[in-house]
Amino acid sequence: MAESTSGGEAILHKTFHSYTVRKAQGGSQSTKDNKGTHSKSAGSSLRRYNEQSLAQHIQELMKTWGPDIVKCDLIFYRAVGRSNMSSLFGGPSAPLLKSDPRLRTIPFPTRRPTFNEVQRVHSLLALTFIYGELQNT
């Protein structure tokens, strides 16, 4: 899930859906493979292919959005797990650099990455909470 906004309105938006998670197991196929058991079923092969394809799509999208990403003041991201982190920060032409001072992780739990969830996260990140009393000075 990726989005770029201007004044709260989405100007760039793309959602990917891929079958990469093992049903009733909750984890990715690559995590299962890294534990030493390498399944040979059609489902496991499909999940492996979809994981690689998803990472490639993310990197290609980030590359095409490069000029817009350069203009961003802050970049918030959620990438749990090694494969998700490598989609953003790995490879010879990584879309983002870990040393970029604009990068921030989202500081609260998020749900499934849908466009509605991105809008919810954006609205929460844009809020300002003031605790205590304001004093006019």
Rank of each mutant, 00 (worst) to 15 (best):
Val118Asn: 09
Ala42Gly: 09
Phe76Val: 05
Pro92Ala: 15
Gln52Cys: 08
Lys32Val: 02
Thr5Gly: 02
Leu127Ser: 12
Ala94Cys: 13
Gly26Trp: 02
Ser39Leu: 02
Ser83Leu: 14
Asp33Lys: 02
Lys71Pro: 06
Ser45Met: 12
Ala126Phe: 01
Thr15Asn: 14
Thr64Arg: 14
Glu60Asp: 15
Glu60Asn: 15
Asp68Cys: 07
Lys40Ile: 07
Glu117Met: 00
Val121Phe: 06
Ser83Gln: 15
Glu117Ile: 01
Ile75Phe: 01
Thr137Met: 06
Gly27Pro: 05
Ala10Gln: 02
Ser53Trp: 12
Lys35Phe: 10
Thr15Tyr: 14
Ile130Ser: 09
Lys71Glu: 13
Ser41Trp: 01
Thr15Ile: 11
Cys72Glu: 14
Glu133Lys: 13
Ser93Leu: 05
Val21Lys: 11
Leu46Ile: 02
Leu124Arg: 13
Arg104Pro: 00
Cys72Gly: 09
Ile69Asp: 01
Gly91Lys: 01
Ser6Phe: 05
Val80Phe: 05
Leu54Pro: 00
Thr37Gln: 03
Ser30Lys: 03
Ala10Tyr: 00
Pro113Leu: 04
Ala2Cys: 06
Gln119Ser: 13
Glu60Ala: 12
Leu74Thr: 13
Ser28Asp: 07
Gln25Phe: 08
Trp65Phe: 11
Arg120Thr: 10
Met85Ala: 02
Ser39Glu: 03
Lys32Cys: 03
Pro95His: 04
Thr15Lys: 15
Lys40Val: 09
Trp65Asp: 03
Gly66Asp: 12
Leu54Glu: 03
Thr110Glu: 09
Tyr19Trp: 08
Leu125Asp: 08
Val118Ile: 12
Ser83Asn: 14
Val118Glu: 09
Ile58Pro: 00
Arg104Tyr: 01
Gly90Asn: 02
Glu117His: 00
Ser39Val: 01
Thr128Tyr: 02
Ser87Cys: 14
Arg47Asn: 00
Thr64Asn: 14
Tyr131Ala: 08
Phe115Thr: 10
Gly36Trp: 04
Tyr49Asp: 02
Asp68Lys: 08
Ile11Gln: 05
Arg22Glu: 09
Phe89Trp: 04
Val121Arg: 04
Asn50Ala: 11
Pro109His: 04
Leu125Thr: 09
Gln52Val: 04
Thr128His: 02
Thr64Ile: 07
Thr114Met: 05
Thr110Lys: 03
Gly26Arg: 07
Arg112Gln: 14
Phe76Gly: 01
Leu134Glu: 11
His122Asn: 11
Phe76Trp: 05
Leu125His: 06
Ser53His: 14
Thr114Asn: 06
Leu96Gly: 04
Pro107Glu: 03
Ser18Asp: 11
Leu134Gly: 09
Asp33Trp: 00
Ser87His: 02
Lys35Met: 13
Leu134Gln: 08
Lys35Pro: 00
Thr114Gln: 10
Glu9Asn: 13
Thr114Ile: 07
Thr114Trp: 00
